[in-house]
């Protein structure tokens, strides 16, 4: 009996919207073209106005370009004798990134679980944590570093702490989105088995979300390695301090050595990490 209602509905509804739909799309066609042109115009106007306000003009590019040549000339040949000196700070940079990423990833796990609506159905818990995560992610890593240098003093600890917060924000956010998208079937099965909430997480959630979590951890590590190289500019440890010094002392040959070594490290780590991540997913 109920079926009758269902079967009449689909047949009667399509006939009505089909004609108005056509007229709506026709009516929309013309203004849409005008709108597109207007959007581009607005875009260009904003660009020009902004550039003028901050004195960004192609003129500066032409004037500055020869300077670039001078700089590059000074950089080569790089001062390879500087390599032994920068080896330790480079390693320190990597260590800062490793420690920051891992220590950030650990609290990211409970944060992700408490943010995911399918695991924590209480908005009173998930909402504050999500808000915190959003706040953490609005702060750039260098700002974190500058603040922590002010609090904990110059050195790698401040840098590590900056990366910790930064990693926590990203990993928790990406992970909770993954957790919300997992197959609910095994969770239902674990509930039916009589599992506690923690058992449900261990048996139903973690096996499903772990590969993605590790992938996010490596991805964040890639970002952190790059971020760690400039942490030294605000006194937060690593190779950035020496790079800043070399540039300040106009020792562009030394700066070149640092940049080349950093580039090599970043390339190797990026490559390895990408390979592992590809295998994981």
């Amino acid at each position: 009996m109920r079926l009758d209602i269902k079967s009449t509905n689909p047949t009667s509804t399509p006939s009505i919207p089909s004609s108005p739909n056509d007229s709506i799309s026709n009516a929309l066609d013309k203004p849409r073209r005008g709108k597109r042109i207007a959007t581009w115009m607005l875009f260009i106007v904003i660009l020009v106005v902004c550039s003028l306000y901050i004195d960004v003009t192609p003129y500066q590019l032409f004037v500055g370009l020869p300077e670039m040549g001078v700089l590059l000339k000074e950089m080569f040949p790089p001062d390879w004798s500087y390599l032994p000196t920068i080896w330790a700070p480079t390693l320190q940079t990597i260590k800062i990134a490793v420690a920051g990423t891992i220590l950030g990833a650990i609290p990211a796990i409970p944060a992700a679980l408490f943010s995911a609506n399918n695991i924590t159905p209480f908005k009173s818990v998930s909402l504050p944590i999500r808000t915190l995560l959003n706040l953490v992610r609005t702060v750039p890593d260098l700002l974190f570093a500058a603040v922590f240098v002010a609090v904990f003093g110059i050195g790698p600890f401040a840098g590590m702490l900056a990366l910790l917060f930064f990693s926590f924000g990203i990993i928790a956010k990406l992970t909770y989105e993954t957790v919300e998208a997992i197959d609910p079937g095994p969770l239902e099965a674990m509930t039916a088995v009589g599992a506690t909430r923690i058992q449900l997480i261990v048996f139903g959630v973690i096996p499903q979300a772990l590969p993605a979590f590790i992938s996010y951890l490596l991805y964040t590590f890639e970002i952190n390695i790059r971020a760690a190289t400039v942490l030294g500019f605000v006194g937060a440890g690593g190779i950035g301090l020496l790079l800043n010094q070399s540039l300040g002392l106009f020792r562009y040959d030394r700066a070149a050595t640092i940049i080349i070594l950093t580039l090599a490290v970043v390339l190797i780590i990026d490559n390895a990490s990408t390979r592992i991540r590809r295998k994981l997913l």
């Binding site: 079937g185 095994p186 096996p207």
Partner: peptide
């Protein structure tokens, strides 16, 4: 015990 249409095993 419950058995589901989609098995609901932990696949990995």
């Amino acid at each position: 015990g419950m058995i589901f249409q989609s098995f609901n095993l932990i696949k990995r």
